[in-house]
């Protein structure tokens, strides 16, 4: 019973993904002005040849700060799970 329900949910989710994806054409992305701005101005404004790095560390620096904080917290949590207990 539960297994059949799981299979139905899987089929439903895959179908939803298919409906979403079938409306998008591959190779012709939406020409957003933000991406055009990044490509045309990242070299002059941040001095980096690599546009992805310029986006990551300059335009969206807060994003990278949160990412580094998540990694730090994950390391902290893993350490906390395996801490040495007193009573053992």
């Amino acid at each position: 019973m539960r297994r059949n329900l799981s299979i139905i949910i899987v089929i439903l989710m895959v179908g939803m993904l298919g409906v979403i994806v079938s409306g998008i054409s591959f190779g012709e992305p939406v020409d957003h002005p933000m991406d055009r701005y990044f490509i045309e101005n990242s070299q002059l404004e941040s001095g980096a040849n690599n546009v992805v790095t310029a986006v990551l560390f300059d335009y969206r620096g807060f994003d990278t700060l949160g990412e580094a904080a998540v990694l730090f917290t994950a390391a902290l949590g893993t350490m906390l799970v395996f801490r040495r207990r007193r009573e053992e």
């Binding site: 980096a48 040849n49 560390f57 300059d58």
Partner: peptide, 9 residues
């Protein structure tokens, strides 16, 4: 080149 970007890297 790059300003603060290499230091942040």
């Amino acid at each position: 080149t790059g300003g603060l970007i290499p230091i942040m890297n």
